[in-house]
Simulated assay, not measured.
Amino acid sequence: MKDVAARAGVGLKTVSRVVNGEPGVTPDTGRRVQEAIGLLGFRRNDGARVLRKGRTATVGLVLEDLADPFYGPLNRAVEEGARAHGALLINGSSAEDPDRERELALALCARRVDGLIVVPAGDDHRCPEPEIRAGVATVFVDRPAGRIEADVVLSDSFGGAREGVAHLVAGGHRRIGFIGDRPRVHTATERLRGYRAAMADAGLPVAGSWVSLGATAPERVSAAARSMPAGPAPVTAVFAADNRVTVTVVRVLAAGVRPVALVGFDDFEPADLLRPGVTVVAQDAAALGRAATDRLFQRLAGSRPSPARIELPTRLIARGSGEIAPAH
């Protein structure tokens, strides 16, 4: 650093400001320092920086399933936000296993990450409380933490589902099925609540055979999607409560003998290429990631507000599948 300062004709503090992205340096001085850094091949000593500041400039992200397309934009947004703050992102997948989620969170804390962003798989997050109290900033995203008070960034699952089902009702449907994730998953219960609210708003009953919750495995979803349009009270429309469910339902309905309307929660890449295009309630995964990262770095900067619940809106995208008229 002394060599960089001597070549640029500045003091050590100025070099430190440039290297750490701190204010108080003119553009011309910053350019001279950067040129000296390039010529001398200077690299910041992050080990010394950790000892001095007590920070590792790393952030941990625990996702539910890295293979789920929903988490790609969220992961990228968190990575870009961390990079903008000079931090490295370390991520892992809980594989929808609460025990693995806890192990990952504690392992990241043991590696002294400055903060954690977690997509919860379980419903009890008291385990990392000592680390949170010790200063590890933590934000939950997509679902709230269980049994502790913590920052959370969510999409409006209830309102989005209510709007999607109301769209089917407005199209003349009176028998509408719901296929969702497992009951212990917060988003699944919120979307089911939105479905029931829309049906109640319209004065419509909900038969037990019209609701199916469980694993999003194709076998389970396929069985539900085949049975609902059959039997004594067949549905004329289906609300699919996440993108993996929607993809399976599309395949089943395409092979059906009569058209069934479909609205899905979560957009997915081929949705607008199918015929008809799939009508969806879209949530902005990247916006969730950005909002969670912003909240995390607010806390790392010393802000100590009370835990907040930040809820982002969804939007209905009509493409054709949700506009199919009921077959009488």
Score class of each variant (00 low, 15 high):
274 L>R: 04
257 V>W: 07
282 A>H: 09
37 I>V: 12
256 G>K: 00
238 V>G: 07
95 A>I: 05
299 R>F: 14
264 G>K: 01
144 P>V: 09
110 A>K: 11
214 G>K: 03
90 I>S: 11
195 Y>V: 00
152 V>T: 13
228 M>L: 15
68 D>C: 14
94 S>V: 09
314 T>I: 07
322 G>T: 05
45 N>V: 05
65 D>Y: 13
39 L>K: 11
260 V>S: 06
291 A>C: 12
236 T>H: 04
113 V>F: 02
163 E>W: 03
91 N>V: 07
164 G>E: 01
141 V>H: 04
241 A>H: 04
42 F>D: 04
260 V>D: 03
309 R>M: 06
185 V>A: 14
100 R>W: 08
62 V>L: 10
24 G>L: 15
218 P>W: 06
85 H>I: 06
105 A>G: 06
31 R>K: 13
199 M>K: 00
310 I>Y: 00
7 R>Q: 15
167 H>C: 05
99 D>K: 13
220 R>S: 11
99 D>P: 01
236 T>K: 02
294 D>P: 00
102 R>D: 14
80 E>T: 11
169 V>I: 10
192 L>H: 05
134 A>L: 15
31 R>W: 02
57 A>V: 08
213 L>Q: 05
202 A>M: 06
235 V>I: 12
94 S>W: 02
188 A>N: 02
160 G>E: 04
36 A>S: 13
220 R>A: 14
39 L>V: 12
109 C>R: 05
90 I>K: 10
214 G>A: 03
115 G>M: 06
255 A>L: 09
242 D>P: 10
307 P>K: 15
213 L>R: 01
252 V>P: 04
260 V>K: 03
227 S>L: 14
322 G>A: 02
100 R>V: 07
126 R>G: 14
168 L>P: 07
100 R>Y: 06
52 R>S: 14
28 D>A: 15
88 L>T: 13
47 G>L: 15
24 G>K: 10
250 V>P: 03
39 L>P: 01
195 Y>M: 00
142 D>G: 03
207 A>I: 00
63 L>I: 13
197 A>E: 02
124 D>I: 09
286 A>L: 13
293 T>L: 04
